[in-house]
């Protein structure tokens, strides 16, 4: 039980940025962006390659995050330049990323089981593994989360941030105000996919390897986490950005905890997906039928 919570918090905070990449683009830019699978792969693969080549942890992380963000920028550019369907743009970039990832890594898998990572920065807090929680990793991931949340809130309130939101939510109005819509979408997708790439980097640090198929399935678990998070938080009591950001993080942690619980209970591989799907369904159904806001005092 405690082990599942520990795993859920760590994995949840690692994958939260992919979830947030999806929800930010979807909710604020009105762009259902499939590219998060590609940017997570490119982020993780670039980090592994750069780290193997001797780059420092911070430099490798920053470069990898930018590389992943570029995948999103490509999606936005294809969409605005060629007027291709948003889903199709994402699928095209996912295909491109597969080849690019293979070429980058030079093989389908890079092992990093020995390397020390950003997650080990606060390793002394673990007290040699005697605690039931990976305190060091959790402290680092929480600080990182606080930094990103702070940055996002500040950025979304600046004029460029507001312009970007207008460009996403009401392109016609944005054009009438003289805001360049496609440029803002490209920039927005660059940012959301940088977040997803960060998840990829953290995942490589946590699991000790980068693999060409590490992005596959991220979309599904991100959607599930988004659904859970948005049902658990009271939407009416928060501003939209606050709601989107915290729903992504909370949803990701809850989903990963449930997954860890299901695995810990020894559910057969064949039943695992059904169990997690049922859980998502229950959460959604509760909200729809009962309008229950678990964190709200009176519904």
């Amino acid at each position: 039980m405690i082990a599942a919570l520990d795993i859920g918090i760590v994995m949840g905070l690692i994958l939260a940025w992919s979830v947030l990449g999806l929800t930010l683009s979807y909710r604020l830019l009105d762009f259902p962006d499939l590219t998060i699978e590609a940017s997570l792969l490119i982020g993780g693969a670039s980090y592994a390659v750069l780290h193997r080549a001797g780059f420092g942890l911070f430099v490798a992380t920053v470069l990898a995050v930018v590389a992943g963000g570029l995948a999103g920028a490509v999606t936005g550019w294809i969409n605005s330049r060629f007027r291709i369907n948003k889903f199709l743009c994402g699928i095209i970039v996912i295909s491109i990323a597969y080849t690019v990832g293979l070429r980058l890594m030079g093989s389908s898998n890079i092992g990093q089981t020995q390397a020390s990572t950003l997650l080990d920065l606060f390793a002394p807090l673990d007290q040699g593994g005697s605690l039931p929680f990976h305190v060091g990793s959790i402290v680092f991931l929480t600080l990182l989360a606080a930094g990103i949340i702070g940055f996002l809130f500040l950025a979304l309130r600046t004029q460029p941030g507001l312009k970007m939101r207008v460009a996403g939510s009401n392109p016609g109005y944005a054009r009438s105000l003289g805001i360049p819509v496609s440029r803002n979408i490209v920039l927005g997708l660059f940012i959301t996919n940088s977040l997803s790439a960060l998840s990829g980097v953290l995942l490589v640090m946590h699991q000790g390897f980068a693999d060409i198929s590490m992005g596959q399935g991220v979309l599904v678990i991100s959607l599930a986490a988004m659904t859970i998070g948005e049902r658990l938080l009271p939407e009416r009591r928060m501003s939209l950005p606050t709601f989107v950001v915290f729903a992504a993080i909370l949803g990701s942690i809850v989903y990963q905890t449930i997954l860890a619980l299901a695995i810990g209970a020894g559910l057969a591989a064949t039943d695992l997906r059904l169990a997690t799907a049922m859980f998502v369904l229950v959460v959604v159904a509760l909200k729809l039928t009962g309008r229950v806001d678990l964190l709200e005092e009176e519904a």
Partner: peptide, 28 residues
């Protein structure tokens, strides 16, 4: 079950049970 993101979760979950030995099949 082929779900890449479950790999670190399974590894951590197993490690938390303090086994005497872990047999891991496949590279990741």
């Amino acid at each position: 079950n082929g779900q890449m993101q479950a790999v670190p979760t399974i590894a951590n979950e197993i490690a938390s049970q303090n086994p005497r030995l872990i047999i891991a099949i496949t590279t990741p």
